[in-house]
Design a binder for these strands. Structure first.
Lengths: 226, 226
DNA sequence: GTCTATAGTCGGATAGAC
DNA sequence: GTCTATCCGACTATAGAC
């Protein structure tokens, strides 16, 4: 059916331009409504090249999701890796000291996360991800296995150590989602945020306020008495 | 251009069937990809009736958003009204007593909110709302003015009174969004939640766990020391 | 590897019978 | 108010020249 992607270096710029345009157009219009013409026009290449390079529209869609997973991993990967290394080094050790640096790491990770969600470049692929969450296609696996599972695991584990009360793994995962939700809302409900806050843009100043709020909330949640 | 909606009672069942089907199909496919044929088929009526009753596809879309705003208002309106009445009765009074019942009201409102977001019936229109948030059309006003602004105002005001430390209105609004985000994530990132929690459904048991988590987090956030 | 041209399908809107 | 029939434009995919 859909042939493998040709790998000749000569076509690489074309493939990358198509993928970048695809993320934008698929994110804005959804898979069905997005037209291959709109994508090829935005990429500045011929429409027939989508069939040649990706086998067709679905192949280009999957390539776009893979590109997103790689982008997120590139952006958050180093921080997540350093956290995972620290988690492994601490092993089963617990106590005030572990709790303190786990909280700090949790705050740092979510500040990086919300910074990513706030950026303009993330707008297009965030739209695609939110679509996949609402109606998962076969491509959802690319996103979940590509970065979601790993980040969720790190956040849950940090919550467990920062709280240091015998919360179950399921409870920590639930806490992780409520913490992540506090960042996600600034992308998922962006239009309402901008209108209600009467912001004209979400720039550095606004992001600082959001980050301070997140730091405070995270500390309050993990330090609260059970 | 698009004539006003005919108001004859004879056509009312047709209009309602079309609006209900429209919420489902528009939510699933987006405005462009949704076909009027799919909507009329799902509604069990003739495709040409969309033109007759709503002037066309855009008219039906706006009618669907209006229906959603009314549905949410019906579901959360009474609770919000009782909260607004209490806020008005308290006036400028502050202190421990006001803080305590404001916290309780905040928790109750968010439990109702997340219950709505968890319900299957809300899935379709939640999809539509998330789409509008990501790429607001002219119809976003219908949603914002219809219920968002009012609920956000109630949550912000409850946060201000439950904290009872001189936080600015902007800070309270930001806190309100982070609190609402903790509920919204269970709709916006539903696919990731189900997979990571290894849930097969989000039923009464799972919802109880989410609500307990929200209660705890909200109390921790508003009671934390500045 | 990239292009033009086109075949085949499906979309929204509407005219007109009942 | 509801239906059938149809126009016309836009879409994806692909054949074939360069």
């Amino acid at each position: 059916m859909s042939n493998p992607i040709p790998t000749s270096p000569r076509g690489e710029p074309t493939r990358e331009a198509l993928v970048r345009a695809a993320i934008d157009v698929f994110g804005r219009d959804g898979f069905d409504a997005a037209s291959t013409r709109a994508i090829s026009d935005a990429a500045g290449v011929n429409q027939a090249l989508i069939g040649y390079h990706f086998g067709g529209k679905p192949g280009l869609y999957l390539a776009a999701l893979r590109f997103i997973a790689t982008s997120v991993s590139t952006r958050l990967g180093p921080l997540v890796e350093s956290i995972e290394a620290r988690l492994a080094a601490d092993g089963r050790a617990r106590g005030k000291k572990v709790a303190a640096h786990s909280l700090a790491a949790l705050q740092a990770l979510l500040e990086a996360f919300v910074g990513m969600l706030a950026s303009d470049e993330s707008a297009a692929w965030a739209r695609l991800i939110l679509r996949e969450q609402q109606s998962p296609s076969a491509g959802f696996d690319v996103l979940y296995d590509g970065f979601m599972h790993r980040i969720l695991g790190a956040v849950s584990e940090l919550v467990a150590r920062a709280q240091d009360r015998g919360a179950t793994a399921a409870e920590c995962k639930l806490t992780a989602f409520t913490i992540i939700g506090q960042a996600v809302v600034f992308r998922a409900a962006r239009a309402a945020v901008m209108r209600e806050m009467q912001w004209r843009q979400l720039g550095a100043g606004e992001l600082d306020g959001i980050r301070a709020q997140l730091r405070r909330n995270i500390a309050a949640i993990v330090q609260a008495e059970p």
